[in-house]
Amino acid sequence: MKYRVVRLCRSSAAIEAIPEKKENLDLYEVEEKLRAAGYEIITNLGPIMVVKKDVEITIYDTGKLLLKTKDEEKAREEIEALRSYL
């Protein structure tokens, strides 16, 4: 998956990544892949999943990501690591 924008979110408290095109991810499938890759699954509601490795990340079924960090470089690293599982 490719991301069109990586920027501070509206509240300036996190980094959001907007995909080039809206996806329709099956987050239950994604959950299995991420669990195997060592991510902690905090919750998976279907349309929204919250996972954690170094940074807590909210994953939406549209492909949008919300990373709980203000460090853009760190966020880009996390997105790169996560991207292949989506």
């Binding site: 979110c9 509240s11 300036s12 509601l45 909210t58 919300l66």
Partner: peptide, 8 residues
Amino acid sequence: IPSLCCTI
């Protein structure tokens, strides 16, 4: 102070 809005 910046804090995350409700994501749900």
